[in-house]
Design a binder for these strands. Structure first.
Lengths: 154, 154
DNA sequence: TCCTTAATGAAAATGATTTTCATTAACAAT
DNA sequence: ATTGTTAATGAAAATCATTTTCATTAAGGA
């Protein structure tokens, strides 16, 4: 968690009159230490190991909150549940562009042409902003396909 | 439905031993005649007007089927339900790149820089194919933001 | 230490989607 | 055209992720 015992998100929370609680610390701890794209249930199970009394409801509530605050992003990969990622993750900084196998559901954070993608996306973002009078807050790029292993199982 | 009374999808279906049924005709009819991004329930309601005895279950089953066949695409726009689009729609041919207002949930099929996007996407697709040994079947590009009207309501 | 109220946990409710199963109807063979 | 096989259907029940309710707890300012 950044090595500091009073991280910057504390300030962020307190400003909004929100309290620093064990469940919140635990949830952010889990998200900070994973490279995966965890679902609410998975985050809950992970948190549960250290804080067995934290409930699934609380996990859902805080994930929603963290998303509204712009701290995490919520993704849909087609497996019927939402998955969450820290927007500025120490584990995988930068973009969140995904390659998903529709067979085994594995999710790959790819790096190919990301520079160019970002460049174009920025341009598109500006165009959309202007043309449709939107204030853009985020984007999603996903490629779907079948991985080598799954192709073997056909 | 294409002006022909024996459309090409009939052949497509029969080849797989699948039958041409009223519900299937009705569902494709609805998808063919909309520019919207309909949910299963919305498709069901639309079908229901003409064929009141077609059930919601059947709509779900056939949407899944049509997706597997590569005839329609399933999207998630963050409102908790899946939405479907004909991949080759007579109403909006070409791409399916979306701009979504997180306030009012409106979905815009935008046209800005789509040429360039497709060009880059094709390049990325090839790179991913090679680098990760994937057979790419589709992609998703979405921008999220707040539209002008919704910004007023804050 | 006390007080206010944000936050929590457990259980119930909700809502989209899937499964079950008995019935119907496509369509190939007759 | 009639029949037989079985894919497809519809209704109801089941499932599963997520949300709501509500009584209780605890963060943090006074």
């Amino acid at each position: 968690m950044n090595g500091k015992n009073n991280p910057e998100w504390h300030r962020n929370f307190r400003q909004r009159g929100m309290r620093i609680t064990e469940p919140r610390k635990a949830i952010l701890e889990v998200l900070n230490n994973t490279t995966e794209h965890l679902s609410a249930e998975e985050i809950y199970m992970s948190v549960h190991r250290t804080y067995p009394n934290v409930g699934l409801t609380t996990v859902y509530r805080n994930l929603e909150l963290l998303e509204e605050m712009g701290i995490i992003a919520k993704f849909h990969f087609g497996d019927g549940r939402s998955r969450y990622e820290l927007i500025h993750s120490p584990q995988k900084p930068g973009h969140h562009h995904h390659l998903i196998c529709t067979g085994c559901k594995q999710i790959i954070d790819y790096d190919d042409f990301v520079e160019e993608e970002i460049e174009l996306l920025t341009k598109v973002e500006q165009a959309l902003s202007a043309a449709h009078n939107f204030q853009i807050t985020g984007h999603t790029i996903q490629f779907y396909g079948i991985c080598h292993a799954c192709r073997g199982n056909l």
